[in-house]
Design a protein around this nucleic acid. Structure first.
Lengths: 156, 156
DNA sequence: CTGCAAGTTAAAGTGAGGTTGAGGTCAAGG
DNA sequence: CCTTGACCTCAACCTCACTTTAACTTGCAG
């Protein structure tokens, strides 16, 4: 029987509980998204709090953030202690806005769709559907049609 | 002056009008999403209807479809004739559902988030509110907190 | 004719977000 | 002791949706 309370989880268990492949966990570590303690034999050992961190990562991904953005967000967590409710709350609040924007974008798209079904237009420049936020314009280049909120932020 | 009515557009013009890079048009052709007639010299010539097809592709992408899904959808268009408004309408109709689902999912996520901000849980399987100890282990894998509609369809 | 933009191809590169495989180690059971 | 399974690293590979590059051709204007 292990001591309770300070239990450290091996990667397989974390992977299973989080529903994230062990390879993904190693990958996250490789990109600096995750840290791990090591056992005497060099194996990864995670505190239970990693599950919350992973939940956050997962949720943030689902909201459309890149791993890089998530990393940046997580970097604002205090290193010295296990993050508190307030810490997570602060982080989460930042994507509440993003969710609102995404919802707004999709809603606009949907409403545009309804209209466009009526007119059958699907016009490249004027149709709200193919050009939700009126982005395309005369800038000949890479254009982009997704509402910003829906696109990965790849600004160089 | 060219004859009107049967004008065929070169790739550059299509690219410019559609706001899609010529390289992307060639790529679309390479994956079977687009076809082109050729001039005597071997250059691509597109009928004006390609603009609507491109609008469809772009809109579908905005709704979150992969090029492969779009290709499948487009494959149901009649080959013998230029697609009618009714054809496009039929294709687009399914998006409405998809958009509704996406919006519902994001809203659920947002609202769930709001709730969870209250407790700060962000629990992987069940909210800590109802499951304060991390009792998750015994449930099947994969659970996740996101509504299915929002997750990438990567189920192996 | 020259000059040059616009077009052609095949192949390689990009970047995000991983997975897969080879080859080796660690820890527990029999 | 030996076996088994979980784990380790590192490098290579994968998908998606394109873009870039190199080497070459087409077509039009002057």
């Amino acid at each position: 029987m292990a001591m309770l309370g300070t239990e450290l989880l091996p990667i397989g268990e974390v992977a299973h509980r989080a529903g994230i492949a062990a390879s993904a966990l190693r990958y996250y570590e490789s990109v600096g998204l995750l840290e791990s303690a090591r056992s005497s034999g060099g194996r990864r050992r995670y505190p239970r709090s990693v599950l919350r961190r992973l939940a956050f990562i997962r949720a943030a991904q689902n909201v459309g953030l890149s791993l890089d953005e998530i990393k940046t967000a997580l970097a604002t967590l205090p290193e010295a202690r296990t993050p508190t409710v307030a810490d997570w709350t602060r982080l989460s609040r930042t994507w509440r806005t993003r969710l609102d924007e995404q919802i707004a974008g999709l809603t606009a798209l949907r409403d545009g769709l309804t209209k466009c079904i009526g007119c059958g237009c699907l016009s490249l420049r004027t149709c709200a559907l193919s050009n939700p936020r009126d982005v395309a314009g005369q800038f000949g280049e890479g254009a982009m049609f997704l509402p910003e909120t829906l696109r990965a932020h790849d600004e160089a």
